[in-house]
Simulated assay, not measured.
Amino acid sequence: MYSIKMRASKNGKHISGAERIVNKEEIELVANELIKRALMHENGTPDFINLKIEEIKEEIEYIDHLPIKTIECKNKREAREKARELLKNEGISDELIDYAFKIIDKGGMRGAAILNLRGERLEPDKERGVRVKNIDTTKELKEKILKEKLGTERTVDAIAIASKVIHLGIIAELCTSDNKSYTTGYVATKKGYFRITNLKEKGENGGRVFFVKNDVDIEDLINKLENKPFIIK
Rank of each mutant, 00 (worst) to 15 (best):
K224G: 05
I103C: 06
K228D: 02
I166Y: 05
G207D: 07
R20L: 00
G207S: 12
E25V: 06
K57Q: 05
I60D: 07
H41S: 08
R37M: 03
V187C: 08
T183Q: 06
E226R: 15
K52G: 00
L174D: 07
G129M: 01
D64F: 00
E55Y: 06
L122S: 14
G108S: 12
E72Y: 14
E219V: 13
A162S: 15
I97Q: 14
G17L: 01
H167M: 00
I27P: 05
E78G: 11
G108Y: 10
K69Q: 09
E90M: 13
D47Q: 12
E140S: 14
A18T: 00
K5C: 02
T138F: 02
L174M: 08
I196Q: 03
I114P: 12
K190A: 04
N227C: 06
S177L: 03
I231S: 13
M6N: 04
N179G: 08
K36V: 00
I159E: 01
Y182M: 11
I170D: 06
G17Y: 00
E226Y: 06
T197Y: 01
A38E: 01
I35K: 15
G169F: 01
P229N: 02
V30I: 15
N89F: 01
E72M: 13
I4W: 03
S93D: 09
I231T: 08
I97R: 10
V216I: 15
E42L: 06
D125I: 08
K102E: 13
Y2T: 08
M1F: 02
S16K: 10
S181A: 13
A113Y: 01
F210Q: 06
K76Y: 04
H65G: 02
T45H: 07
E143Q: 14
I15D: 09
L117D: 04
K228P: 01
R208C: 08
K88G: 03
E25P: 00
I68R: 07
Y182C: 12
Y186C: 05
I114C: 11
L34Q: 09
A162N: 12
L221K: 10
V165N: 09
G111K: 10
L117Q: 04
D157C: 10
K102S: 12
A100D: 04
D157G: 10
G207T: 11
K126W: 01
D157A: 14
S16R: 08
G206R: 13
